[in-house]
Design a protein around this nucleic acid. Structure first.
Length: 705
DNA sequence: ATGTTCCTTCTTTTT
DNA sequence: GAAGGAACAT
């Protein structure tokens, strides 16, 4: 069969049109479960196979690493044997921008070995800034205003995502600055300056700096515009202004954007995402060919009907869709009411136990919840019944202390001016380098205007040459000599392009593993659960990534391969997820595990059976405590929460359970009356009277278990 | 320099 | 109720 026909044969008419459309700007409005990813993947295959584009002329942007991985895997699985996939760029906005900035660091005004800060690093970084003497007043004021480093970081990220540097933010908001913004603005310039000094880049900066680079550097902009003939964007409704701007910059005269999205699934408004970008796109990039996918392959008609009724209550929808299920009615939706949240957890676990006993595959069962806290009780109940489970994003693997420590060594080796990395590990394992020595070191660094690492090196060198050095200096040198040597040895390996697993091994053997073995012993963790196990996992992960790089090396924008260690560190910072590259999720255990996800992180996934835990008043929609909002904003939030509920419901293929507790407990306000989510009422109200009994089965806990 | 105990502070979602 | 911080003891 010719490639053209084989690509199209498994698609329906509307999908086929989108995949085989002639090249132009396109917007695919793809409702939940309509085969959005399939269309994206097939379109890429079409571009490569039929339109004969080279892989390097295609750019695919996704919203999560998970989605990027899946897309690459599915393209590979199509076995386009005539096509070489090397050079195809597929990744998140952040990872793609990181690549641009590595290639054009100099033009972007960055150190090419910059390190990427995740939100946690950013928090520490700000904390550190506030400790400096010059910032003492600000630190006091911030504390008085209950403005934490985390909040400052969030506000800065907010500014950056609106494309605003410190001066611009001050100018734009001058009349409507909240006290928090005002304080943040005082620190923002210092923050920017210190990031540059330490060669650190936060998440938002990755995108902002790339946008600035291509805005001001016409030559580089033209180069990219010529390179990427087709730019495909997944989850377009989740783009923010800055990302939209980036796309505008990357699109050239002869290239096109293929955007896929669904305004009804926009759930990242709180992060600056604006689904109205769908409309903007239609205007700004006209002429745009509009396609709609309305055949839902995923859910039974009952489930889809409920979802449609719910989303129908939103007034600010911008596309009208009529999703139709290709499946039959299926079972009714079960609404499970429990007395307390604990009962809900055990009820869900019992129900899952029964399903598995009846032969359902554990991996086709998912429990979804609004906030991570809700997973703890359910985990406990599953554990009690020895039902294996997999929590996505509980404690993120790369955020674990021991993992971050190990990575900090590598970061320091690559970028010695990374003070945050140094502070993290200077005394891990314990070297007798406590707060007192640290403040001496800080003073030396500040006085000479150098990084902490440089200061440390100078101290060690000085003590070596001057036997009569002050006692304080000698002591400092003595305690840190080993550390300085280790970093130097690592750095030497980095220079010759050593593999990350080699560097990690050096770090572990230099004492980190022993140290954490002791910690494990003290915490009485068995070898399976402990921190050492995580470090081994990290090592394994590094090996896997290396092997992968061997097969398909990551290239920078000029087509030069990226150093493995840099690729590894970028990956570590950008992969907030527990998804341990491919390895952690592809083991055969994985197939036997029930899935636990927040609703946000379950977007794009589907499961045979879905339990929505906490489909509850106060939680969904989430009612923030004590935060008066303007009415317009409040409605906006409500509609986003409704979309969130819609996303949760539309994850289910065949069986849907909506669960709630009558009472919720918080240590803050005690027992609170909860009860069913108003969204349940939305659906019920919208139903015809004779439909009510056919769509739902209502169970009180007692009947049910 | 490290270990202990008491105190305060918390609520959402993530690259 | 847990986690992180500050004050205090070893």
């Amino acid at each position: 069969m010719d490639p053209q026909a084989s690509l199209l044969q498994s698609l329906n008419a509307e999908q086929r049109q989108a995949v085989s459309a002639e090249r132009s700007n396109m917007l695919i409005v793809a409702g939940a479960g309509t085969g959005k990813t399939r269309v994206l993947v097939s379109r890429i295959a079409w571009l490569l196979g039929v339109e004969a584009l080279a892989a390097r002329e295609v750019l695919a942007v996704t919203f999560t690493n998970k989605a990027a991985h899946e897309m690459l895997e599915r393209i590979e699985a199509l076995k386009l044997n005539t096509v070489n996939l090397k050079g195809l760029w597929c990744g998140t906005f952040h990872s793609i921008c990181a690549r641009f900035l590595r290639s054009y660091a100099v033009q972007a005004g960055l150190d090419p070995s910059f390190t990427i800060m995740d939100s946690d690093d950013q928090k520490r970084f700000i904390d550190e800034l506030l400790k400096a003497e010059e910032q003492a007043d600000l630190a006091v004021a911030a504390k008085a205003a209950k403005l934490t480093p985390a909040k400052i970081g969030a506000i800065i990220a907010d500014f950056k995502e609106q494309g605003l540097r410190a001066a611009q933010a001050a100018a734009k908001f001058h009349s409507r600055l909240t006290p928090e913004m005002e304080l943040t603005l005082e620190l923002y310039p210092v923050y920017e300056q210190e990031c540059l000094r330490q060669s650190k880049v936060d998440f938002a900066e990755l995108i902002l700096r790339t946008v600035e680079l291509f805005t001001h550097n016409a030559e580089l902009r033209a180069l990219q515009q010529r390179r990427f003939k087709e730019i495909l964007v997944d989850e377009f409704q989740d783009t923010n202004h800055l990302q939209y701007q980036l796309l505008s910059l990357l699109k050239g005269h002869d290239s096109h954007i293929f955007a896929v999205g669904d305004d009804d699934q926009s759930i990242y408004g709180w992060r600056g995402a604006d689904y109205r970008n769908l409309n903007r796109f239609l205007k700004d990039f006209a002429p745009v060919h509009l396609f709609k996918l309305e055949q839902n392959y995923r859910s039974t008609s009952q489930i889809l009907h409920a979802a449609n009724l719910l989303i129908g209550c939103n007034h600010e929808r911008i596309t009208d869709k009529h999703l139709q299920s290709v499946k039959g009615d299926g079972e009714r939706i079960s609404v499970l009411s429990f007395n307390k949240v604990e009962d809900e957890a055990s009820g869900i676990a019992q129900c899952i136990e029964k399903l598995i006993a009846d032969g359902e595959a554990p991996s086709s069962i998912a429990v979804l919840y609004r906030n991570n806290a809700r997973s703890a009780l359910i985990e406990q109940e599953l554990l009690q019944r020895s039902i294996p489970y997999y929590v996505y994003g509980g404690q993120r693997f790369y955020e674990r202390k021991e993992v971050q420590d190990a990575i900090s060594y590598l970061r320091l080796a690559v970028n010695p001016s990374d003070n945050g990395a140094l502070l993290r590990i200077i005394n891990v394992p314990a070297r007798g380098f406590g707060p007192a020595k640290l403040s001496t070191l800080r003073a030396i660094a500040a006085e000479r205007g150098i990084s902490l690492h440089q200061a440390l090196c100078q101290v060690v060198a000085f003590a070596k040459e001057h036997a009569d050095a002050p006692r304080e200096i000698k002591l400092l040198a003595k305690k840190s000599a080993g550390f300085v040597e280790l970093i130097a040895a690592l750095n030497a390996k980095v220079q010759v392009g050593a593999a990350p697993e080699l560097l990690l091994t050096m770090v572990l053997e230099a004492g980190l593993l022993d140290y954490y073995a002791q910690v494990d012993a003290k915490e009485k963790k068995d070898s399976d659960e402990g921190r050492c196990a995580n470090l081994e996992m990290l090592l394994l992960n590094a090996k896997n990534l290396s092997a992968r790089e061997e097969r398909t090396p990551t290239e920078d924008a000029d087509g030069k391969p990226l150093s493995k260690i840099v690729a590894f560190l970028s990956n570590a910072a950008l992969m907030g997820s527990t998804e341990l590259t491919a390895s952690g999720s592809s083991g055969d255990d994985f197939a036997k595990k029930v899935r636990l996800y927040t609703i946000h992180s379950a977007k794009g996934l589907e499961f045979d059976t879905v339990f929505v835990a906490g489909f509850e008043r106060g939680l969904l929609p989430f009612v923030p405590f004590q935060q008066p909002r303007e009415q317009a904003q409040q409605r906006k939030c409500l509609e986003e929460e409704r979309r969130l509920a819609y996303v949760a419901i539309t994850r289910a293929k065949n069986h849907l359970y909506l669960c709630y507790a009558a009472y919720a407990f918080s240590y803050y306000s005690g027992w609170q009356l909860a009860g069913p989510s108003p969204f349940l009422n939305d659906i019920v109200r919208a139903l015809g009277r004779n439909e009510r009994a056919t769509l739902f089965d209502f169970y009180a806990a007692a009947d049910f278990v």
